[in-house]
Amino acid sequence: MTTKYNMVKRAVKSKIIDGTYTPNQKISSESELMKEFGVSRHTVRLAIGDLVLEGWLYREQGSGTFCADRSKMTNNQGVSSQKSIAIVTTYLSDYIFPSIIRGAESRLSDEGYQVSIFSTNNNHENERNILEKILSQQFDGVIVEPTKSAYSNPNITYYLNLEHLSIPYIMINAYYDELEPISIVMDDEKGGFLQAEHLIKLGHKEIVGCFKTDDTQGIKRMKGFLKAHRQNNVPINPSYIITYNTEEKDTKPVEELEKILIENNKSITGLVCYNDELAMKFMDLLRMKNIKVPDDISIVGHDDSLLADISEVKLTSVMHPKSEMGVFAADTIIGLVKSRNSNVDTFNANSKIYEPELMVRSSTKKVNHL
């Protein structure tokens, strides 16, 4: 159970971290804090006293209590001799993320960095809590996979606070466009284009595309899917586009595909999937309905994950750099940290876009026109 003292301390600290209180700004008076939290003056003084001792606040006799400029504390005093990097991903335990993390963690460990790994579960509130923790503990640098990157992000102020504290961060797989960060991503539009074009070149015209639309990867892959149809003069059937968000990923795509299969009987010959994980779910549904891959329907995934090669029918999929992306991210953040610590801007950090390639396996074949 949180004590009243900790409640006040945490609330004031959060206002510093999220930028509500800016450096050298006077914070609320003791009386105002007493009223806001319904606590005694003694409780307020204990909480504020702790934050002063920890360097979050400072007092001026006769004037009040003010927010400290923590960028000076970070750069000049240093909080810990332990070199540390935070890696924030949307998910930890499944799919391609372990490979990305392993690549980054191995490289960072070689350079003597302690790595802390966090997962947002693609939830903005979780992201906020993690960013608060990162800002409180003063990490040397941060590698971030954005949460729901297609949406306006409510946590932008936390990233601006990282910048104020001169804590370098880079983004992988996607990025928040308004921040214009250094980013390491795939050309997802081209990936979606390659998926659809592959099926079109095999003679498929009735193609269902399924995309996750609360992240920019899904939006761009859908754009590539549509572009491939237009450039090859293949009509797009609007009812063949399935979209879903994070909360719907375990149910909606399969339900929507099942409806399309029922309504269109055997006219569908191709499936383009947001990723391999979704492709596996679709293959399970097709197996239940006795629809054979690739004889009846060809299917293309994205990311060329382990799932693509261990499935009963080997999956045609767009390759993702995975471990290579992790290593490149690690090298970039190490360079940025060293450049900051030396106070010399000698490291030329640039964003990187990986070109996708299609790995063709046995889940696709030429369509049999009767």
Results as ranks from 00 to 15, higher is better:
G270H: 06
M280P: 00
E256K: 14
D276T: 09
L278P: 01
N275T: 05
L271Y: 12
N245C: 13
K249M: 14
E258Q: 15
K249F: 03
E247A: 15
L286D: 00
D250H: 14
L278S: 00
E258A: 14
E255I: 10
I260Y: 08
I291R: 09
E263K: 15
L271M: 10
K266I: 06
N245W: 00
V254L: 11
Y274S: 03
C273P: 02
L278D: 06
M283Y: 03
K252M: 10
V254D: 05
T243F: 03
I260N: 07
C273D: 07
V272K: 13
T269C: 11
E277G: 08
K289N: 14
P294S: 08
E277D: 13
D250W: 08
P253E: 05
D284S: 12
T243L: 05
T246N: 13
K281I: 00
K292R: 11
N275A: 11
V272E: 09
M283K: 10
C273T: 05
V293A: 00
T251Q: 12
L261T: 06
Y244M: 04
N245Q: 14
L278R: 00
C273K: 03
M280Q: 06
M280S: 09
K259N: 12
R287A: 10
S267Q: 15
E258I: 05
V293N: 01
Y244T: 06
C273E: 01
E255D: 11
F282S: 06
K292Q: 12
E247V: 11
K281D: 09
L257Y: 10
I262R: 11
F282G: 06
A279H: 02
L286C: 00
L285P: 07
E258L: 11
K292I: 09
K259P: 07
N265F: 14
E277R: 13
L286A: 03
E247Y: 15
M283P: 01
K266T: 13
I291Y: 05
M283D: 07
E277H: 10
A279V: 01
E247M: 11
Y244D: 09
N264W: 12
N275H: 08
M288A: 03
K289V: 03
L278K: 03
L261R: 01
E258Y: 12
T269E: 14
E247G: 14
N265M: 09
L285T: 07
L278A: 02
E255A: 08
D284W: 02
R287G: 02
F282E: 06
K249H: 04
G270R: 05
N245V: 10
N265V: 15
E263W: 04
S267H: 14
K281G: 01
V272Y: 09
K289H: 13
L286S: 02
D284F: 07
I268G: 06
C273Y: 02
M288L: 08
T251G: 01
Y244G: 05
M283T: 08
V254P: 05
L285F: 06
M288D: 06
E255F: 06
T243E: 15
T251I: 12
K281W: 00
D250K: 13
E256P: 07
K259A: 01
